[in-house]
């Protein structure tokens, strides 16, 4: 155990850190609305010792009720459109919606139209777009840290900085 912790400490020491550590925090709730699991792997990877999202005040939380950002992956299937809306409606204001990956953005989308509910834009107001198939953990970390300091779609400061 001691050796293992030492190993992790060394790993962390050897990984270069981004110099910019502004204050603030965002609580992120993820919803998979019909992905290929690539975006989930990469979002999880963004919390590994190489990227360590938590150090920027970005935390993935268990409930939409605790969340500032709803981070949505995948083509929006007809079967997930309902649960997705429920998750959005249970979030406190102010809230941001982030589309993670090309499927959520409606690009190069594959599937049977009968099974898909339409692009995320037509279902929820999208504030933040993170392209990629899937976006790399680096791209995810950068986009989310940038979101800490961006105004909301209504033009006002997002009011999410605490």
């Amino acid at each position: 155990m001691f050796v293992l912790l030492n190993h992790l400490q060394r790993l962390r020491r050897d990984t270069p850190r981004a110099p910019d550590r502004r204050r603030g925090s965002l609580a992120v709730r993820h919803v998979d609305a019909g992905s290929c699991n690539g975006c989930e792997h990469e979002l999880t990877a963004a919390t590994n010792p190489f990227y360590d999202l938590q150090q920027y005040g970005l935390n993935i939380v268990a409930s939409p009720r605790h969340a500032d950002v709803l981070l949505i992956t995948g083509a929006i299937t007809t079967r997930m459109a309902g649960p997705l809306r429920t998750a959005y409606e249970s979030m406190p204001e102010p809230r941001l919606v982030a589309a993670l990956g090309d499927c959520a953005l409606g690009c190069n989308l594959l599937g049977d139209q009968a099974e898909l509910a339409g692009p995320l834009e037509t279902i929820l107001p999208v504030d933040l777009r993170i392209p990629g198939c899937p976006p790399t953990p680096k791209a995810i970390a950068e986009a989310l840290t940038a979101a800490l300091h961006r105004p909301s779609s209504s033009g006002h400061s997002s009011g999410l900085i605490r």
Partner: peptide, 10 residues
């Protein structure tokens, strides 16, 4: 099957 995209049909 919440994530059913109908890939085979497509």
């Amino acid at each position: 099957f919440y994530k059913r995209r109908g890939l085979e049909t497509a």
